[in-house]
Amino acid sequence: MDLKELKRVRLVKRIAQEFPDGALVNLGIGMPTMVANHIPEGRTILLHSENGFTGLGPAAQRGKEDPRVVNAGGQPVTIVPGGAYFDSSMSFAIIRGGHVDYTVLGALEVDMEGNLANYMIPGKMVPGMGGAMDLVAGAKNVIIAMEHVNKNGAPKILKKCTLPLTAVGEVDLIVTDMAFIRVTKKGLVLEEIAEGVTVEEVVKATEAPLHVAGKLGTF
């Protein structure tokens, strides 16, 4: 495993510790999906797949794919014992109605007011919001899983998002390869830093001002 991968695993492991036993969780595509592999022993969570079921299981084995069972990315997956299928209206009632305890998504930008931009770059990437706007507006807790800076090394945690917003003021937690940051009414609170990272490095890589928690943890 290279260093980048190690850092990613560390951050998804940290997010996985947030879920209490029995939580209903929706994971976005990419890094958020990895969270499912790191649920602490003794705890069980139920995964929601917005195309229409609870009890999302691992990817289907090659040769055992069922074309009727796919995840929100269209990949053949499995359903675990105790799962349940439903239609899109029910699925989004579950999301919008506040019945999903946690959603974990990636971000292009997130800001100090908990605003999120993660669905388009005008003129470059316009894939559509899919279920992201409903998830961020409806889930009880919104956790962002992302690299702390973009490909060019520029901060992604800003004073104010510049890209089109996915939702306003809905983000609760930002977990990156460098830091664990809580969005509060007073602004962003740096609660934990990744091992081997200093507070100064986090502050430098973050455009928004950070309040450093009195008892700073590491992960």
Binding site: N51, G52, R68, V69, Y85, F86, S88, S89
Partner: peptide
Amino acid sequence: LPAATKNMAVV
């Protein structure tokens, strides 16, 4: 409509 094929069909 079994499994995850229901999606938008019902509405």
